[in-house]
Computed example of a mutant assay.
Amino acid sequence: MKFPANDILIVVKIGIVSDGQYGERAFEQIRRRFPTEWILLPFPSSPVVDDIDLTIPPCDLYISYIRHPDIAMELVKTGVPILLGVNLGPGFINQAREINPAVIGPETMCSLLPNTKFWQINEYAKVFGRPVFYLILDKERVVWCHPLRGSPCGSTDAAADELNGQQLDMEAMNRFALSICHNCRAPRFGKTCDKEKAGIIHLVELLAALKGVNRELWEKCSQLVDQSTCRVISGS
Rank of each mutant, 00 (worst) to 15 (best):
K2L: 13
I39H: 01
L203H: 06
Q227C: 07
V142A: 01
V103L: 13
K117T: 01
V132Q: 12
I99V: 14
V132P: 05
G20F: 07
D194C: 05
K117A: 10
L61Y: 08
M173C: 13
A125Q: 01
I71S: 10
L40Y: 05
F34C: 13
R231C: 10
D157A: 05
I180E: 12
N115Q: 10
I99H: 02
A172M: 07
C230S: 15
A102V: 05
Q29A: 08
F27E: 15
L41K: 01
I71C: 08
R215F: 15
A5L: 13
F176I: 03
P42Q: 10
I136F: 03
L84E: 10
P57M: 04
I201G: 08
L40G: 00
E196W: 00
V127R: 15
A159L: 08
G85D: 13
L88Y: 03
G150H: 05
K220G: 05
I66R: 10
S151V: 00
P69L: 15
R231G: 03
A102K: 14
V132S: 09
N164C: 04
A26V: 01
V127P: 03
V232W: 02
G199H: 08
W218T: 05
E205I: 00
D50A: 09
L168I: 13
A177C: 12
E37A: 15
G150S: 09
N115P: 01
T192C: 06
R31Q: 14
L163M: 14
K211R: 13
F43H: 12
G129Y: 02
C153T: 02
S64P: 09
P90V: 04
N122T: 00
P90I: 02
S45R: 15
E216W: 03
V143K: 14
S111N: 14
A159Q: 04
A177H: 05
W38R: 15
K220M: 11
D194G: 07
C110N: 09
K13Q: 15
W119F: 04
N100K: 11
I104F: 10
Y65W: 14
D50M: 06
A96I: 02
E74N: 08
A158N: 02
S155I: 00
E219W: 03
D60A: 09
A125W: 01
I39T: 02
H202R: 02
E196M: 06
I71N: 07
C184T: 01
F43R: 12
E123G: 09
Y62G: 10
S111I: 06
F189D: 14
L168G: 08
C184M: 04
P187I: 00
A208T: 06
E196S: 08
V86I: 10
H146Y: 09
V204N: 04
P35S: 11
S179R: 14
A125P: 02
M109P: 14
L113Q: 13
N94R: 13
Y65T: 00
F34R: 07
Y134P: 03
E37L: 14
I10E: 15
P101M: 10
S45M: 06
G212E: 15
T229Q: 08
I39Y: 00
K191I: 07
L203W: 07
L75A: 07
K117N: 12
R25S: 13
W218Q: 11
M170E: 12
L84G: 04
P69H: 10
N183Y: 11
V204R: 08
S236M: 10
E162I: 05
G190M: 05
I82H: 09
H146G: 08
N122D: 08
V12Q: 15
L137I: 03
D50G: 08
D70W: 05
D60Y: 06
P42R: 06
K220N: 09
